[in-house]
Design a protein around this nucleic acid. Structure first.
Length: 922
RNA sequence: GCCCGGAUGGUGAAAUGGUAGACACGCAGGACUUAAAAUCCUGUGGCCAUAACGGCUGUGUGGGUUCAAGUCCCACUCCGGGUACCA
């Protein structure tokens, strides 16, 4: 009997569909387990072999958990809104909804072939009204909430309004865009519009002025990615920094909680570190500096309050509102020229650029501790978005300030005893303070850390500033000047935003006839007819960004068809949150911050019962492409094999990896691949054409995209699944290379032969032998620990070893083979299901129980010890298990081979590591 | 620039501080076959040596800790990801 994977896989996939094998319902009699994949954006290129890597891993885990008796939720859906579909629409006129639907259909076909255990009845698509209704709904909740710093949670904006009416801002401790101060009388005297404007300062979803990359020619805002050296990547049009009123989410209000609860998560340390750095908590102080001969005062933030005596200049970000206020008439032109010169640079380009640049404003600020004037400069190394957009510069103890001071020949005053600042700054927070006395504060002789504490206390006491904790984390800009995204449930009255009523949701995305911005530079929705609410007020023209739909999708899978709520309370209390989340590290700071924020917000409103969405998170590595090359001799149609190419003047040309096998070119396929090569000639080596190769990004243009369908077609889904795991550790990035796939496929054939070779021996339902038990229990132990450690590559090796051993033992034992099949079922479900039934079992292997491991079967009678001299292994000795240490030492030293290495010396030391080795130190 | 990873044979890789290269691919030789495919067996890090035993060396580079380092520490090189509007 042959291993016919096509027949087996189709048959069992049909069986699973017919029997709804993977359908899940809430079941309080079983413990729950929620395994989630980061859902894909359905791109036009289709699924490539990189996508299933994480999906296979999570599928193995889900199936394993089910074998252990858990009720496993394992859903899949599509992140269906996005820029590529819109770009494609602009180019081809095809509606994004049409191409998206087409791509989803293709993705689904591809996913189905791999044999995943998804409950497809729970599928979601972010672009469907019944899904994005809840994205819009959540946005309305955010608009109607503010963040109370005293209770550390989001609360109703109505309670804030009531508070304002009663006592104004007195005693208010709320997250806000700027600190405001007004009385109840002032509040009550405000017009509706003024009140609404004031409330935006507190709402969690608010309209704010933010800096964006504006491209006037394209009439749109661009991502940093889409801008290079001041011009748009697409079209090469100039791009400038521009202030724009956009929807924002007050993510920064949650900064402290996002940071603190990282400790409760089972994520890798590096990922937590990345999030910590992204949130960027720093404790410091805000201080006011007065401008000399003026009423103007500006605020700076510093973490080094101890260095105020070393301030020799101040620096403002080019976008700082203080720039215009403080610049003197004489310097106005220079400052404007400078700002103009850096206006085209993106934030990232600015940070990467090491060259020092800046301009003097003509103004001087008074150092509040020395009363000395220091010049105020403008430079792009200070970012408007962080802190207050203004800094006090202490060149002696900050490397960026130091570079600036050296460049512009500004003074450098050392403040720490013994530090040498002639070549570089002394940034470390250690040492004894010097040169630091004045205005009633004396830091001299104090340790840096003490000095920081002392200074903070001093400035707070004297009213020079206040102690402040700053975060690098910024509020999320939530508007996109695009079409293919969720419409905002917002209309404008008298220039102020108002929310639609919940019963008016979903606000569906309207049809438009052009996906480009309007003539007047409005977003594409400006083309929509009757884009007004039922009272005739205009609706918002922007749409929501990609992360809107992906921030709470894990909740919707719990209760995907609920029309009354995002998720019902009881269902949410059963599934709670995601136990295992698998996806790429590229989401470390975007998606994983936004969805944690979104989740915490919903938790504050008591809509869900867990404040963190993803308990455990595993990052799968990226699968890169492995490109193949042929070498054409210049100006000919002759191609020379890899190892002969150096004898000619050749041009390497990318060749489709699908017509290359183990780096050997299929010459006929190559001739048919492109008419240009129809009459190609070849210079072969050993009768074959060997291709060159390189690791590159997997993309159409490199001809290195491998579709999982092709692998399934050729080897079957089980081989694909095993091979993707066999490639290497899940978390590691690696190039896709089919060179090893035959080995995995051969393994499945060997397994098959274990059952069907030697037909004269029937499957025996008898007691297994000692050797059989040892082999299978070694496997059971290895597989369970591997799955729990996400070490799936070593599992595949373990299966190979076990099957090799059982083949050598000629085992046909029913009990042993049944255990083997259950272990393999999470990895290769189709062949396992087939063999399971061949063993005479009547129900699906999916519903079996994972075999229990018994240590007894693994006990060894003899142990092989390595005998080493000065750490180098010289020979081996076998000892009976449990041989005492001193006897091992004695035997090793008196062994006939030992004399050669002892050279007559007496060992200084002998180390015996039980069950491992002996090291004799000479 | 900044933050987070990674580097081990011809290739993918394995290795709680304890015999580096398990398991595979590829390659070489052999068996079966009219032949090929498939399958099976043997060998396979490098260098030296050999009739045979064997010896030296080796985990990106340079240092260090340790009886013992691929693994821990310090400094570097190269590669990948992120860097807030790609998803």
């Amino acid at each position: 009997m042959e291993y016919n994977f096509r027949d087996i896989e189709q048959r069992w996939q049909q069986y699973w569909r017919d029997n709804k094998t993977y359908k899940v319902k809430e079941d309080s009699s079983k413990p729950k387990f929620y395994v989630l994949d980061m859902f894909p954006y359905p791109s036009g290129a289709g699924l490539h072999v990189g996508h299933p890597l994480g999906y296979i891993a999570s599928d193995i885990y889900s199936r394993y958990k089910r074998l252990q008796g858990y009720n496993v939720l394992h859903p899949m859906g599509y992140d269906a809104y996005g820029l590529p579909a819109e770009q494609y629409a602009i180019q081809t006129g095809q509606h994004p909804a049409v191409t998206t639907q087409k791509n989803i259909t293709r993705y689904r076909e591809q996913l189905d072939k791999i044999g995943f255990s998804y409950d497809w009845d729970r599928e979601i698509r972010t672009c469907e009204p019944n899904y994005y209704k809840w994205t819009q709904w959540a946005f309305i909740q955010m608009f109607n909430s503010y963040y109370n710093n005293d209770t550390q949670k989001a609360e109703s904006i109505d309670s804030l309004i009531a508070r304002f009416a009663e006592k104004g801002t007195e005693g208010l401790n709320a997250a806000c865009s700027e600190e405001l101060s007004f009385t109840a009388e002032q509040w009550n005297a405000m017009s509706e519009k003024e009140q609404q404007q004031t409330l935006l300062n507190y709402r969690i979803a608010y309209l704010g002025d933010t800096m964006v990359n504006w491209c006037p020619a394209l009439g749109t805002v661009l991502a940093n990615d889409e801008v290079s050296e001041g011009v748009s990547v697409r079209g090469g049009h100039p791009v400038e920094q521009r202030l724009m009123r956009q929807w924002c989410l007050r993510v920064s209000a949650y900064a402290d909680r996002l940071l603190k609860s990282l400790d409760t998560l089972n994520w890798t340390d590096s990922l937590k570190e990345t999030q910590k750095n992204w949130i960027g908590r720093s404790e410091g102080a805000e201080m006011q500096f007065k401008i000399q001969n003026s009423d103007i005062e500006f605020t700076i933030f510093t973490t080094r309050a101890d260095t105020v005596f070393g301030v020799t200049f101040m620096v403002l970000a080019p976008e700082s509102e203080y720039v215009n206020q403080v610049t003197t008439p004489e310097q106005k032109e220079a400052v404007e020229n400078y700002i103009q010169s850096i206006k085209h640079k993106t934030e990232r380009e600015r940070q990467m650029d090491k060259t020092v640049s800046g301009v003097f404003t003509g103004a001087y600020a008074i150092n509040p501790l020395t009363n000395q004037p220091v010049p105020v400069w403008v430079s792009d190394y200070v970012l408007a978005g962080y802190g207050t957009g203004a800094i006090m510069a202490v060149p002696a103890h900050d490397s960026r300030d130091y570079a600036f001071a050296k460049h512009f020949e500004l003074p450098i005053i050392p403040l720490i005893e013994g530090c040498d600042v002639s070549e570089e700054s002394f940034d470390a927070k250690e040492g004894k303070m010097i040169n630091s006395c004045g205005n009633g504060l004396d830091l001299n002789g104090l340790d840096v850390k003490e000095a920081i504490v002392r200074t903070k206390a001093f400035i707070a006491e004297k009213g020079l500033g206040r102690v402040k904790t700053n975060f690098r984390l910024r509020d999320a800009i939530f508007s996109r000047q695009r079409y293919w995204g969720e419409p905002f449930p917002v209309y404008y009255k008298d220039g102020m935003p108002y929310m639609l009523k919940e019963n008016q949701l979903p606000l569906e995305l309207p049809e438009i006839d052009s996906f480009l911005p309007t003539q007047s530079g409005e977003p594409p929705l400006g083309h929509a007819k009757n884009w007004v609410n039922d009272e005739g007020f205009p609706l918002e023209l922007c749409t929501m960004p990609g992360f809107a739909g992906s921030s709470a999708y894990f909740l919707r899978y719990m209760d995907p068809h609920n029309d009354e709520a995002l998720v019902s309370k009881s269902v949410n209390e059963y599934w709670r949150n995601v136990d295992l989340y698998i996806g790429g590290t590229e989401h470390a700071t975007g998606h994983l911050i936004y969805s944690r924020f979104w989740n915490k917000f919903l938790y504050d409103l008591d809509i869900i019962c867990e404040d963190e969405p993803f308990k455990k998170l595993v990052n799968q590595g990226m699968i890169q492409g492995r490109s193949n090359f042929v070498y054409r001799i210049k100006d000919t149609n002759t191609f020379v094999s890899l190892n002969l190419k150096d004898q000619y003047d050749v041009t390497p040309i990318h060749v489709d990896v699908n017509i290359v096998s183990n780096d050997i070119l299929d010459i006929d396929a190559f001739r048919n691949w492109n008419p240009e090569y129809k009459n190609a000639e070849f210079i072969l080596e050993d009768g074959r054409y060997v291709c060159g190769w390189a690791v590159e990004k997997m993309s159409k243009s490199m001809f290195n995209v491998v579709n999982p369908d092709d692998i399934v077609e050729k080897y079957g889904a089980d081989t694909l699944r095993l091979y993707e795991m066999f490639l290497g550790p899940l978390e590691q990035s690696k190039p896709w290379d089919t060179n090893g796939i035959d080995g995995v496929h051969r393994f499945l054939k060997k397994l098959w032969n274990l059952f069907f070779a030697r037909p004269e021996d029937a499957i025996a339902d008898t007691a297994p032998t000692k050797e059989e038990l040892k082999s299978i229990h070694k496997l059971i132990k290895k597989i369970s620990s591997d799955i729990e450690n996400f070490s799936f590559n070593t599992s595949v090796s373990a299966f190979m070893i076990c099957v090799n051993e059982l083949t050598a033992l000629k085992s046909k034992n029913k009990q042993v083979l049944s255990d083997l099949v259950i272990c393999l079922a999470p990895f290769a479900p189709h062949i396992s299901e087939e063999l399971w039934h061949q063993l005479g079992h009547k129900t699906s292997v999916v519903d079996a129980s994972f075999p229990a491991f018994n240590e007894e079967y693994l006990k060894e009678d003899v142990v092989n010890y390595a005998i080493s001299f000065n750490g180098k292994v010289r020979f081996n000795i076998e000892f009976a298990a449990e041989t005492p240490k001193d006897e091992i030492e004695k035997t090793a030293l008196s062994h006939e081979l030992a004399a050669k290495w002892l050279e007559g010396k007496t060992p200084k030391k002998v180390i015996v590591v039980p069950n491992k080795l002996v090291n004799i130190v000479l």
